[in-house]
Amino acid sequence: MPAAELTLDVEVCSECGLCVAVCGYDALVLRPTILEIIHSECVLCDACVVACPTEALRIE
């Protein structure tokens, strides 16, 4: 079984940037039309998952 990873549902994400504001590890960058996850920086702290107004971000 592969290690857990932060995943993004691009259909649900509205690019509001709230997750970027709560990320303390610079693991999320809001590019012009997509949220980019920098997996090498992500520590799976769950802050962005909690903050996301939709259910676009998940750790699975």
């Binding site: 709230l18 504001a21 709560v22 990320c23 303390g24 802050a47 909690v50 903050a51 996301c52 107004p53």
Partner: peptide
């Protein structure tokens, strides 16, 4: 500017 989750509204 990192914001703890307790300090925001969604």
């Amino acid at each position: 500017t990192t914001l703890p989750v307790e300090h925001l509204d969604s």
